[in-house]
Amino acid sequence: MNNTITQTNFNFPGQKSVYKGKVREVYNINDEQLVMIATDRLSAFDVVMPKGIPYKGQILNQIATKMMKATEDLVPNWLTATPDPNVAVGQLCQPFKVEMVIRGYLSGHAAREYKAGKRQICGVAMPEGMQENDKFPQPIITPATKAEMGDHDEDISREDILKRGIVSEEDYEVLEDYTKKLFQRGTEIAASRGLILVDTKYEFGKTKDGKIVLIDEIHTPDSSRYFYTEGYQERQDKGEAQKQLSKEFVRQWLISNGFQGLEGQVLPEMSDAYIKTVSERYIELYEHITGETFVKADVSNIQERIETHVLAYLKP
């Protein structure tokens, strides 16, 4: 389990600053481009687990870059190059301080809210009489405010976003439009692979010339939930849990071990054997969603490999 990358401390030419998120570390180069490194860190309930998951960063980065290429005809994105399996390089953007969450099904956080008796989420009504994992009549957008590392993201309504001036109405309409288009394309891609895209989140930023672009990740197991199409309806009819490919299985494992990120709760220890199964599940999702066999990168010295590739790319 030692061959993982859980933190970086590079000093690239022209480096201005480093932002360390829950999973990604972003290096600002000359206030012009960003070098984004996907680490093997795993976060759940907004808490970063102490051990890395082998190949997770590579999987996230490669799914995200493939999905950006598969949607760039619909929505512009920040990406310009992928010099290393764990690295994406793109335009410097000013991120919007909201995550655009879109849900096609009553699952995860929405299902937990519904079970607690709530029939509204982020100001959006949810129909009566639904059971967990039922499909919504139409996908619903349930934004969240962006959190710094260690803080919980918060549900927020469209009305509050506009009232608090977090995003202008003009820009928010673009974010909503892009979110719907990306989810529709993601749904089609998933369906072609025998999967259902249940819910996902998108993040957007503005380039220096004021263009709104998709940033960060897209349609990865960290940002999305997938079900298998085969057997979905039978499982719903029988009231059984859905077979899914997402990070939800980690959340469920944590819940079963008494942890939901709440104050006073102790993080359960993940054994090496369990970490190996998490890695295998991530590889399984990669192969299902991309339709390609996962090729493991050389992990004998990940830090050195990344540094070599990024320096070669940045060389004038």
Score class of each variant (00 low, 15 high):
F96E: 03
V124E: 10
N9V: 04
P95L: 06
F183M: 01
M270L: 15
M1D: 14
A191E: 11
S271P: 00
P50R: 10
S192V: 09
V174S: 03
S17F: 14
K208F: 00
Q120C: 06
R103T: 00
I63P: 00
Q184Y: 12
I275F: 07
I302D: 07
K163C: 01
I161C: 10
N133K: 11
I161M: 08
R225A: 03
K115R: 09
K296H: 07
G258R: 06
D199T: 02
G194P: 04
A125L: 07
Q7E: 15
I289G: 12
T65Y: 00
A64H: 00
L34V: 07
V18D: 02
N30G: 00
P76N: 07
V98P: 00
K22D: 14
C93K: 00
L262S: 05
I156Y: 02
E188Y: 01
E269K: 12
P50I: 10
A81L: 07
M149D: 05
A312D: 14
P54Q: 10
E188N: 00
G123Q: 12
V26N: 11
Q15T: 02
L60Y: 13
D46W: 05
K16E: 08
L311I: 04
Q236D: 07
S300R: 08
P85C: 09
K135G: 10
L162W: 00
E269A: 14
V310T: 03
I283R: 15
E128T: 11
I121F: 08
G52Y: 07
G14I: 04
E304G: 04
L162F: 09
R103P: 01
R164C: 06
S271V: 02
Y274F: 13
Q138R: 13
D216N: 08
M67Q: 11
G239R: 05
H219S: 09
S223N: 06
T179N: 03
G231M: 06
D73K: 11
A38C: 15
E203Q: 06
